[in-house]
Amino acid sequence: MEPLYIEPSEFTPRVFFDPENSVFEISGFSRPENTVGFYKPLIKWLVDYEENVLAKNTNFNKSNLILNLKLTYFNSATSKFLMDLLMVFMRFHSKGNTVEINWYYDEDDDEIFESGEEISEMINFPFNFIPITPNS
């Protein structure tokens, strides 16, 4: 399956879903004019990935999936879609795959840190909180 790469823009984040290494990353700023149009294809890609890659993994060892969320800002409409996307990862987890969710935040940015805590609480799944020091 081909990776999904979306260049960042002024209003939308960078997306890189890498099926070969099972690493999925969304980074930057998210305030899309068309939130549905931006996030629906990401969810669709993950559903295809589930059908074409995860479901065909007949090994005893299931996949180890890593989701890196490195958002600097996201609006409330984005948070709804982040939740939908995380629910897809929760489904992957419920089917026996290991899921690791890394929530990166600027160490001075309480808003992003607290948003991560709230989302983690809402989906009842622990995140790894990773501070980014400025200029690092």
Binding site: P32, E33, N34, T35, V36, S76, A77, S79, K80, F81
Partner: peptide, 11 residues
């Protein structure tokens, strides 16, 4: 649900 205009009722 997200409306056609992209609002999620969360603003």
């Amino acid at each position: 649900n997200v409306t056609q205009k992209g609002g999620a009722g969360l603003g």
